[in-house]
Structure formats: structure tokens, C-alpha cells
Amino acid sequence: MAKRYGIAIDTRLCCGCNSCVVACKMENNLPEGNFWNRALTEGGESIDTYAGTYGTGSKRYLTVSCQHCENPACTRVCPVSATYKDAETGVVHQDYDKCIGCRMCMAACPYTGVRQFNWEEPHYPLGISTGAAEVVPHQKHVVEKCTMCDHRLAVGEDPLCVATCPAYARFFGDLNDPSSEIARLIASRRYKQLLPERGTRPSVYYLV
């Protein structure tokens, strides 16, 4: 049976520290302004604010990146198949060399902001490259997004957002393998998914 890699995030453990956001940005040498993974504040008016009123408020976070959907809206609409689902792993890839920059995938993806376009020649906050040498170089005028750290998966490591989480709130594994940690968590815990009504069947689960 083909694998279906997924990520589960325990929202009860996530404290919104943004470590996964920064780890992703560093590991993948993301250009200035790009965030493949973003820690969003649920309910509050701006980043890191409480939802609700004083005394009864709560603070919750949702880390959002490409959902690597089982039924992706993006792969279907790409006119040149520059974005495609890996049959072996279920990971949705983006081929920078093939992308014609039409941004049809961005219009099709229901998950606002997970696909990002390099609107100009990529430049980097530090002025030097960071992260893994295997990361495919970024290009101007193409769409990019979370790769599920496929360069790390290739050598048997977890995506860096999972490995780096100081609260151990993120779990990576094969959703199709019932004995995997992630499959057992999903079987035993209550969870939610983002925009299930759009029928994309995401591979990212939020344990609640």
C-alpha cells in the first residue's frame, strides 16, 4: 500500500512559540517575505492576542502550511502539471523549473496563503543562504510552498517543523499505516481539519 504522509498537531500543546515557523524558514532558505508554515492566532484580533473577553479569554494557535491534500485542488488545475501529488508518499510537490507562473493553483487552493509566489528576485534577510544544501534553489516568478521537507524524508528524517517543536506538539508519519504513532493518535484523539467542507481531504490533522 502506498504511503500517505501526514502531520498531526496537538493544539493543546502548541503554545504559539513560532519555532516551527522559523525552523521552516531557515531550513528551506525561504526568501524574504515567504512563510511556508505560519502560526496563526485563533480568535484574537492580531498576532498573539486573546480571543474572548478579559477573564474568560483563551489563547489558541493554528499552524498552517500546505495541507498535502489527498484530493488536492491545486494539482488538478495546473496547466503543465508543475504541481503534482507523489504517488508513493502522498506529498504534493511543486516543480520550480516547470511552473509557468500563472498562479492558477493559488486561485484553486482553498487554504488562503499556503501557496506563495516569488513576486520578485528572491532575496534573503541574512544575505547568505541557510539550511539544507539539498533544498532546491528558489526562483523568481514561480509558486512555491511546503515540501514536507522532502529532502529530509529522503534520508529518513522527520520534517524540521516536527523535529524542532519544543513542546513535542507535532507528529509526522504514515497515515495509511495503522501502527504508526500518527495513525494511533488520530484513531484515539478528537481532531479537526481545515475546511473539510471543501472536499480536499487534507493530510494535516489538528488534535483538539
Binding site: 488538478r76 488545475v77 495546473c78 496547466p79 503543465v80 502539471s81 508543475a82 516547470k98 511552473c99 509557468i100 507562473g101 500563472c102 498562479r103 492558477m104 509566489f117 516569488n118 523568481k140 516568478h141 514561480v142
Partner: peptide, 26 residues
């Protein structure tokens, strides 16, 4: 207007080489 909107107009030929027939844009 489609061409000026494209990020990579030099890759237009790919539309005919790698046509993904499930795409409404195609």
C-alpha cells in the same frame, strides 16, 4: 492579457509539451 500576467512567459511552450488536460486553464 494572460501572457502579461504570466511569471514565466518564456515557458509558454510547456503548455503544449506538458498539457494537463484536467486543468480548466489548459
Amino acid at each position: 492579457f494572460v501572457v502579461v500576467d504570466l511569471g514565466q512567459p518564456l515557458r509558454l511552450w510547456e503548455l503544449f509539451a506538458y498539457s494537463n488536460l484536467s486543468s480548466p486553464l489548459m
